[in-house]
């Protein structure tokens, strides 16, 4: 049985930050989709790496490959057909980059200072190898950043497609933290698989398609007619 390489994990997770930033910031929705696809592949890879520790995670990795890396990008691709560019965002690129860097830095400091609290208050008992612990510290920082970037996308991007992408980012952040905090128990895989948002994405995109047909736009700020 081989050990998990912390370097590999760190690399993969740090690239995740980049991909999520790209997915949030790309004006072209198809580019954003591609960025998201990259991130999905990365998290699949991470899961695969963790399955060294816990074979059950392999099932999750395979499921994630199908849902995150195939189905969700495919849905996004189909629904962005013919409308490559997103509507103008509320906050520009410069601010976004500052926010992303700040969040990452803050989270890094925070997790490395207080990770033990999170880790030990969970199911993750003292028996956990110290390598996993150190991996978890960085991963948590990354997961939080991805999560916040997803939230940031939802809140600041007007385009509904971007909202969906933001939702997927949220999911990825949560999944990353989940797998980092409790890689050794089998139930983690179950929890991960059962929280896949693929159906939600499909539904959202279906509704967005309907909205586009009805209103000719997916700009959420122009949808106030929907309220009663």
């Amino acid at each position: 049985m081989t050990e998990i390489s912390p370097k590999l994990v760190h690399t993969l997770s740090l690239i995740m930050v980049l991909t999520s930033f790209a997915a949030v910031e790309a004006r072209n929705l198809r580019h954003a989709t591609v960025a998201y696809l990259c991130q999905a592949l990365l998290i699949c890879g991470l899961l695969a790496v963790y399955s060294i520790e816990n074979t059950a995670l392999l099932y999750w990795a395979v499921t994630a490959l199908v849902t995150k890396a195939v189905l969700v990008p495919a849905f996004l691709w189909r629904s962005t057909e013919g409308v490559p560019n997103e509507s103008r965002s509320l906050i520009g690129f410069g601010t976004s980059s500052i926010v992303a860097i700040l969040v990452l830095a803050l989270m890094y400091v925070f997790t490395h200072a207080h990770a033990r609290f999170f880790v030990q208050s969970g199911t993750y008992q003292a028996a956990t190898p110290s390598t996993l612990l150190s991996i978890a510290e960085t991963n948590l920082a990354v997961a939080f950043t991805v999560f916040v970037l997803g939230l940031y996308a939802i809140l600041t991007r007007r385009d509904a497609i971007k909202t969906v992408i933001g939702l997927c980012l949220l999911e990825n952040g949560v999944h990353l933290s989940l797998v980092s905090l409790a890689p050794t128990i089998r139930e983690t895989a179950l929890a991960g698989i059962s929280t896949e948002v693929v159906v939600t994405v499909w539904l959202l995109l279906y509704i967005i398609g309907g909205i586009r047909d009805k209103f000719g736009t997916t700009d959420t700020s122009k949808l106030s007619e929907l309220h009663w």
């Binding site: 939230l151 939802i154 509904a160 909202t163 949808l223 309220h227 009663w228």
Partner: peptide, 9 residues
């Protein structure tokens, strides 16, 4: 209930 999704979030 303003009709802006961001607000709800």
């Amino acid at each position: 209930h303003a009709g802006v999704p961001q607000l709800y979030i």
